[in-house]
């Protein structure tokens, strides 16, 4: 069985996987990092978004072996010393979630957006979230949370 090694949330990890093992399976089943969700099998919902070498990707559509040697950040790696990341704090403050299923992917996607575009307008946020589906909120409060996080992160 092939072995895969990567850095996940700053920690070096290694494990035995099959060729077909998805990155999301490795995160959830080998590392027990269950914050990353699986919401579809068509690569469309974005519940599984994590960062690989700084870019947001769908961890359900990448093999664990393709992340060999990579730096991976999941939702569990955002808070520092018990303080929520500004995007997480803003989702809580602005009711950017209801059931919470889409939230880890939404937050990881939003963090990537704010890295590339620290000052997005509402249209740019909505367009960026094309690959993140939420069945609960109607998106308004998610957009509000991201706008507020953008302001907090500048200040």
């Amino acid at each position: 069985m092939p072995t895969v090694s990567m850095t996940v949330n700053g920690r070096a990890v290694t494990g035995d996987v099959e060729g077909r093992t998805l990155l999301v399976q490795f995160l959830r089943e080998n590392l027990h990092l269950t914050g990353t969700h699986v919401g579809c099998d068509t690569s469309q919902c974005g519940a599984c978004v994590v960062h690989v070498d700084g870019e947001s990707v769908k961890s359900c559509t990448m093999l664990a072996l393709q992340a060999d040697g990579a730096e991976v950040t999941t939702i569990e790696g955002l808070a520092k010393n018990g303080d929520l990341h500004p995007v997480q704090a803003a989702f809580r403050e602005h009711h950017g979630l209801q059931c919470g299923f889409c939230t880890p992917g939404m937050v990881m996607s939003a963090v990537d957006l704010l890295k590339k575009n620290p000052n997005p307008d509402e249209g740019e946020i909505r367009e960026w979230l094309e690959g993140n589906i939420c069945r609960c909120t109607g998106y308004h409060n998610i957009v509000k949370a991201i706008q507020s996080a953008a302001a907090d992160m500048k200040g």
Binding site: G46, K58, S109, N132
Partner: peptide
Amino acid sequence: IGDPQVRNR
């Protein structure tokens, strides 16, 4: 094309 995560891969 698609969405940001599709475009990243």
